[in-house]
């Protein structure tokens, strides 16, 4: 891995910024362009960049595949769970207005934040899972074909 010094230094500098930008996109999505889908993909992209430069094994040590597997189910569960909570509070499925008693607009805010978090978890984990699956499959043909 020694030949890629510039690549490694730049990546070390960039990866935290990419992850930070992902969370900015996530929580600023109410005001500007952005949201859970974009943030999830950007968060996954930061890990993918790490894997491309430092190797897949290092990425798997940083974000273990078991986390990824749990994360993708947890994201969908968080989304569905928000709907169930609104059910329990007497509203329709995914009607966030009932989340905060008496303040429907505030309830909508919290509901949207919860749902977007679920989307973030699901999308980021699924993208990482797909990348891990493809990346760790052994190539069938020799490397000299390139």
């Amino acid at each position: 891995m020694t030949p890629h010094v510039i690549l490694r230094i730049i990546a070390k500098f960039l990866i935290p910024l990419i992850a930070l930008f992902a969370f900015y996109v996530q929580f600023h999505g109410d005001f500007g362009p952005g949201g859970g889908f974009q943030a999830g993909v950007i968060l996954a992209a930061s890990v993918i960049l790490y894997a491309l430069i430092f190797g897949l094994e290092a990425a798997k040590e940083a974000i273990p595949p078991s986390w990824v597997r749990i994360g993708m189910s947890l994201g969908v569960l968080l989304y569905g769970g928000t709907g169930v909570v609104t059910w329990m509070l007497g509203g329709e499925f995914l009607n966030y207005s009932v989340l905060i008693d008496g303040y429907p607009a505030k309830g909508q805010h919290y509901g949207i934040i919860a749902v977007e978090l679920g989307v973030l978890l699901a999308v980021a984990s699924v993208m990482l899972a797909i990348f891990y699956a493809f990346g760790s499959r052994q190539p069938d043909l020799s490397e000299e074909d390139w």
């Binding site: 949201g35 889908f37 999308v123 993208m127 797909i130 493809f134």
Partner: peptide
């Protein structure tokens, strides 16, 4: 927006 993300998942 949602179709794009679903599109990449089905592409995978």
């Amino acid at each position: 927006l949602t179709a794009i993300v679903v599109g990449v998942a089905t592409l995978a």
